[in-house]
Write a protein that binds this DNA or RNA. Structure first.
Length: 317
DNA sequence: TTTTTGCCTCTGG
DNA sequence: CCAGAGGCAAAA
């Protein structure tokens, strides 16, 4: 990665007292629409805003540099999305005490945070994740945004050319009116009709923004409500709970977190198939050890498992 | 309750 | 080629 000199007008967020690991956060598989350019600058669309972000690689105590478009200097928007308010050092002390094997993941990914993603993007993005690969999920979600999302203008005069174009994630109304054959052409496969049906279902609810209203409801209730929707099982429901709805205790049990939990805590469940009962038992092993931020702890173990020996940085484009 | 099977499509063995 | 990929739901 070449050293990048950023213009002075890029905003600066100090991370000395509260670490933030930009690349680990964006590469850990919780979001699908960020891209990194050849200079190591990350570009992403969040709601109607494009965020550019840069940080010295592997230095989670160094300042986060950022800009927003088209409206500049949206500091609270950026802090809110990256959840910079969460006191990670305090959590690390609790986690290490509860599980010594967390030490490696914490040292490797110190500053990794769970994002507060826009609700619809997370809801539909993870619908794509069933039986799929991360690379293909990213391609597929990007195609959806390019076809149905509103373009977000980014000035041509930037010193660093945007790897754009950028699009807002499509609205629920747009997805409800989407054409199944177009979605299938964009690699959604058998998930295409589910996306349209889920969008129609959300649209028909009386609430103004039902998904957003779930942020203020308790985890158990939200998980049950999401799981009841056709196409959303326990795992996808937990992803939405954790990555968009402020449910920090939600622990998505997938093929990786399942292996980890079985290895560390429940070898007796090694041969059990992942029935609802087993799913709940494995998720509970995380919660009973790591507490109300078990979902965050899980992300460290998950990412360490995923990139055990590999370089976790994506290849520059 | 648990186990099995089909589902779009791409990729690594 | 074929199995599996950060599942899910229907059927047995």
């Amino acid at each position: 990665m070449m050293e990048t000199e950023l213009p002075e007008d890029w905003n600066r967020e100090e991370c000395a007292d509260s670490p933030f690991h930009l690349s680990a956060t964006l590469a850990s598989g919780q979001s699908f629409r960020w891209r990194r350019d050849a200079r190591g600058i990350w570009w992403g669309a969040v709601e109607e805003t494009v965020i550019t972000a840069w940080q010295a690689e592997g230095q989670p105590d160094s300042p986060l540099r950022w800009q927003t478009f088209p409206e500049a200097n949206r500091r609270e928007f950026v802090r809110n999305y990256f959840r910079l308010d969460v006191d990670l050092p305090a959590l690390y002390r609790e986690w290490i005490a509860a599980e010594p094997q967390m030490a490696y993941a914490i040292s490797a990914f110190r500053g990794l945070r769970i994002l507060r993603q826009p609700t619809a993007e997370c809801f539909f993005g993870f619908q794509c994740a069933t039986c799929n690969t991360v690379l293909k999920i990213e391609r597929t979600v990007r195609k959806l945004a390019e076809r149905y999302g509103a373009p977000i203008p980014v000035p041509h005069s930037l010193p660093f050319p945007a790897p754009g174009p950028f699009h807002a994630f499509p609205t629920v109304a747009t997805l409800a009116a989407a054409d199944e054959s177009e979605l299938r052409a964009d690699l959604w496969g058998y998930r295409a009709p589910r996306v349209i049906a889920l969008a129609k279902g959300l649209q028909s609810l009386p609430e103004d923004d039902w998904l957003l209203s779930l942020r203020s409801r308790p985890y158990a209730e939200v998980h049950a409500a999401l799981s009841a929707l056709h196409g959303i099982g326990a795992k996808i429901a937990d992803c939405i709970c954790l990555f968009a709805l402020d449910k920090d205790e939600a622990v998505p049990i997938d093929t990786h977190t399942r292996q980890i939990a079985v290895r560390l805590y429940r070898p007796d469940l090694a041969a059990s198939s992942l029935t609802p009962r087993v799913y709940a038992a494995l998720a509970e092993t995380y919660r009973s050890r790591f507490g109300s931020y078990a979902g965050w702890a899980q992300q460290y173990l998950f990412f360490a498992e995923l990139r055990r020996a590999a370089d976790y940085l994506p290849h520059a484009e």
